[in-house]
Design a protein around this nucleic acid. Structure first.
Lengths: 182, 182
DNA sequence: GTCTATAGAATGATAGAC
DNA sequence: GTCTATCATTCTATAGAC
């Protein structure tokens, strides 16, 4: 999706505010104030508040999609999985603020579950991350993986921790959970 | 804190709704409707919406406090830590719905950080969970622990997973993270 | 403990001028 | 692309009767 400069300004402001207050805690007035325009100007870029949230989610999942495609293209399965996990951790550390929103905001969770293309993508992602593992235990592992990543990256305890240390500890722990060598 | 029956009805309804919509996404009207009274009746029990959120948080942290005191009373440190982790996992599995609210709702996160007694308690809890570990790496481990627990328990992927399996996998993974035998 | 009624502010959203 | 002005609705919160 090609977006205008004005649209990108809205999305950036919305991301900031939503990361801090959640979707329900962020109003269009707050977004408008942050950019320095009126509500009407924001509504000219996106028809509804939901459209902003969808555009935001699409943009963030886009990074993950690139990583997923690279991993699926890798002929060696284990290598592909290793690649994906590494990239997911890197992305999560890089874009810390968005992680909590995507994983835990009740409005976004609802949206991911109801909006068809999102659900398909999430399934594909978890399948690739788990490799040959299947069944109930695999699902618990997948949930734990996503938990380790998201929380390790957003928790107040680690707010001032060096990116490199965070990345390393995360990767080590993830490898232990999914039993990859490392 | 001793609560009347009417107050408990408010807290139970609020917990349900907040687990589903978040704090900002839950209005006093929704709470009143769920109980079958008017807003004014709810306001008679709690002066503000924030007071409801605080009372809710206190009630849930109360369970953890009992577990923490039992662990601190244990003369053998490793045994105390083992006891605490086990109890925390049990509680999280039992009370799945509240976990996501306590850990990830932006309003509650703010409150836990600003409300003095809450911050003190959280520090005490993490210290006990980590045992002799200290420094940056310990903080990353603490964050990952809380992530594994909370997400493993609330993730859509595990919504229909048996409590016993969830508890076991969680405990095994946590032991690997904090390097406890088991 | 619950009600009706209301105040006052904020919400999402739209119409129409520039 | 942005503005002013406005609408209907919802929000938190309070006053006062039963």
């Amino acid at each position: 999706m090609r977006r205008s400069a004005a649209q990108l300004r809205v999305l950036d402001a919305a991301l900031d505010l939503i990361a801090e207050h959640g979707v329900s805690g962020t109003s269009l007035q707050m977004i408008a104030d942050r950019i320095g325009v009126t509500k009407a100007a924001v509504y000219h870029q996106f028809k509804t508040k939901e459209a902003i949230v969808i555009a935001l989610t699409e943009r963030e999942l886009g990074w993950l999609e690139e990583a997923l495609e690279a991993a699926e293209a890798e002929p060696n399965h284990t290598a592909g999985r290793e690649l994906l996990l590494t990239r997911v951790v890197e992305l999560a550390v890089e874009r810390r603020r968005m992680v909590s929103v995507l994983q835990f905001d009740p409005v976004i969770i609802r949206m991911l579950a109801q909006h068809e293309p999102f659900g398909v993508f999430i399934d594909r992602l978890y399948t690739a991350m788990l490799g040959e593992e299947t069944g109930d235990r695999a699902r618990v592992h997948a949930a734990m993986l996503s938990g380790v990543i998201s929380v390790a990256v957003m928790h107040p305890l680690v707010a001032d921790i060096d990116d490199a240390l965070l990345r390393n500890e995360l990767l080590r722990t993830m490898r232990r959970i999914v039993a990859l060598p490392g």
